[in-house]
């Protein structure tokens, strides 16, 4: 009799302990488990585990945080549409104004990095016109500056950063980049008057010299033909050769300026991505 009770007791005791010891984990632990994948940059698995949490957790308390991390993971994987989708889900489940602001900024950052800056500006404007975020104006301007950088408008970027602080680090940086740019119109105008001059302005001396030489040669031959009364030859050389090299010279002046400017822009963007330590999109 005693032994039966004892056995019963032991079974129940064991069941009770097993109940606690089995792989039962709380939602919080599952969240941390998923977060661990995220921290280790295993973003695919992080998404799986956060999705698992969302699927089983009936309390809905992780609808914000899990979706935010899913969005961040997708963003790291370069899957921007999925990222925005999950940030939007997170946005619908925010509890505080701070969380709401944070999620909207994340959506803006994705729009900056995928260069849909038009959308970023619309979202930034709507944040700015919202009175709840009146004390966040500096942060809004900061991201507006970044959006201008990605829209390749460094002058406006400088203005945005300046409104945060007159000597803001990125303001100074944007100004210095802006000063380095070549003026495309100026390059072209130079080459209108002296073929090759625009190329000299952009530092392409060899190409400038070749352009100048061709234009001098064909110009001379054209004028000489007209002077010698060989009107047909003059027209042919002038229209087929001189004109071709003259317009080619104009195209090149502009092309070199654009190409050099792109290099300057990309060097600046490379610096921002790899060496700048402040918040980045």
């Amino acid at each position: 009799m005693i032994s039966v009770t004892k056995i019963c007791f032991n079974i129940i005791l064991l069941a009770g302990i097993a109940c606690n010891l089995r792989a039962q984990i709380s939602s919080e632990e599952q969240f941390n488990y998923a977060k661990n994948f995220f921290d280790k940059e295993k973003y695919f698995d992080a998404v799986t585990e956060f999705k698992r949490l969302l699927f089983f957790d009936e309390t809905d308390q992780y609808n914000f945080a899990a979706n935010k991390f899913i969005g961040l993971s997708y963003k790291q994987g370069g899957k921007f549409s999925d990222a925005v989708y999950h940030f939007t889900l997170a946005e619908k489940n925010t509890g505080t104004a701070h969380e709401l602001f944070e999620t909207r900024i994340e959506i803006i950052k994705v729009n900056i990095i995928r260069r849909s800056t038009g959308r970023a500006f619309i979202l930034l404007d709507s944040l700015q016109s919202d009175e709840t975020f009146i004390n966040k104006i500096d942060e809004i301007n900061y991201w507006r500056g970044w959006a201008f950088i990605f829209a390749d408008d460094w002058e406006s970027a400088s203005t945005s950063f300046q409104s945060i602080a007159p000597d803001h680090e990125l303001k100074v940086f944007a100004d210095s980049i802006n000063n380095n740019f070549y003026n495309e119109t100026f390059a072209k105008v130079l080459s209108i008057f002296i073929p090759g001059a625009g190329q000299f302005y952009t530092g392409e001396y060899v190409s400038g010299l070749i352009s100048l030489s061709w234009n001098v040669l064909w110009g001379y031959l054209t004028i000489k033909a007209f002077v010698d009364d060989r009107v047909f030859d003059g027209f042919m050389i002038g229209s087929l050769l001189w004109w071709r090299f003259y317009t080619g010279n104009l195209q090149n002046a502009e092309k070199f300026a654009l190409e050099k400017n792109l290099e300057i822009t990309n060097d600046a963007l490379y610096y921002l991505k790899n060496s700048y330590t402040g918040p980045k999109p």
Binding site: I12, N20, S26
Partner: peptide, 19 residues
Amino acid sequence: AIFLLLPSCIYSQSKSINF
């Protein structure tokens, strides 16, 4: 002992899930 264990079992059932 059994009475002490039982509620903890129920409690963990409601809060924890075996994901």
